[in-house]
Each structure stands twice: as C-alpha cells, then as structure tokens.
C-alpha cells in the first residue's frame, strides 16, 4: 500500500468517526457541565448577606451583640468609628465569645483571643477578625454587606467602606 493511499484511507476512516466522537464528547461534556451547574442552587434560604442594621445612634460605645446570632456580626463603636466585625475566628472558623469583663473576644475552640478592635493577641489565630462592608443609606440607616470583607493584614481597614465615622 502506498503512503498516500493509506493516509487517504485513514482520513476517510477518521472523518465520520472523528466527527461522531468529537460531537459525542462535546455533548456529553455539555450534559455533565449541566449536572455540575445543577449542584449550585439559584436561591437559598440562609440568612441574607445584606441587612439593614438600624441607625448609628442605636449603638453605644463598645461591642454590640444584637446581630451576632442572626447574621454573625458584631457592631463595634470605638474611637469614633463604627465597624461591622465578623464573628468567625480566623483560625478554624469557630465562633468566639465576647467577654465583657476581660474586654476581649475569646474563641472556645483553640483559645485565640482578640482585642475589641478585632486584632488577635493570643492563641493560634493567625490574623485579626475580618470587617464587613458597612455603608450609610441615604435615609441614614446602616447597611451591612457581608459579601465584601476587609482584612487588617492587607491594609484594607483603611478602606472607607470598612468603617463609618461617627
């Protein structure tokens, strides 16, 4: 068999089979992709990531725990700033407790401690607690958006969205 004829044969042999396999693979990949997408629900029933947290005047200096259980947020007012602090420990994701007597957050899992500012000072936590985006709406109420996080060690606490001056 000559070289050219062989390759021709092969091309002929390949053409329909190749088209078949490529389209079949593409279709299967498409269907599997849909199955992959299927596992991401389009709506969920967890607490909302955004909520309205009253007006700044509602808060006294110090740590406010009213949104902790529903939304996982401490509102902290100190040094003329109002911030929304995440209540997820930066070590392994436990929920620290606020100890008003000792003026610190203490994580029950591995003993990490945080100042009221959110900065870690003891235990295994590698970095300070995170802040959430906090903004004032035109009508003066506070909106807290948990989808946006600000991390101290990245210098993001200087971002004007991470606090409100009061």
């Amino acid at each position: 068999m000559s070289e050219s004829k062989k390759s021709l044969n092969r091309r002929e042999f390949f053409s329909f089979l190749a088209v078949g396999w490529i389209t079949f693979t593409a279709a299967t990949a498409g269907l599997l992709g849909l199955v992959f997408r299927f596992l991401y629900p389009n709506v969920n029933f967890e607490p909302e990531m955004e909520f309205i947290a009253g007006i700044p005047g509602d808060y006294d200096n110090g740590v406010d725990e009213r949104w902790k259980n529903g939304f996982g947020v401490w509102i902290i007012k100190r040094e003329g700033k109002l911030v929304a602090l995440s209540n997820i420990c930066t070590h392994l994701g436990c929920i620290p407790n606020w100890l008003p007597g000792e003026l610190k957050f203490k994580c029950p899992c591995h003993g990490s401690g945080f100042y009221p500012s959110g900065i870690n000072f003891e235990g295994p936590a590698p970095r300070p607690l995170e802040r959430f985006k906090i903004t004032t709406l035109p009508d003066g109420r506070l909106k807290i958006d948990k989808t946006k996080k600000y991390r101290y060690e990245k210098g993001q606490w200087n971002n004007p969205d991470s606090y409100i001056e009061v």
Binding site: F16, L17, G20, T23, F24, A26, A27, G30, L31, L34
Partner: peptide, 26 residues
Amino acid sequence: TKVQNKVFAFLSILLLLSTVWVILDD
C-alpha cells in the same frame, strides 16, 4: 462499519444539538 460511523456521527450531532437546546432552554 462505515455506515455505522455515519449513523454515529449523525446521532451525535443530534445529541449535541439537543444538548445545546437544553442549555438554552435552561
């Protein structure tokens, strides 16, 4: 086999089309 390959190619194209249809429909 050649005929069967053609049938396969034809059916696969149809399958791809219906997959596209599913994606668009969804």
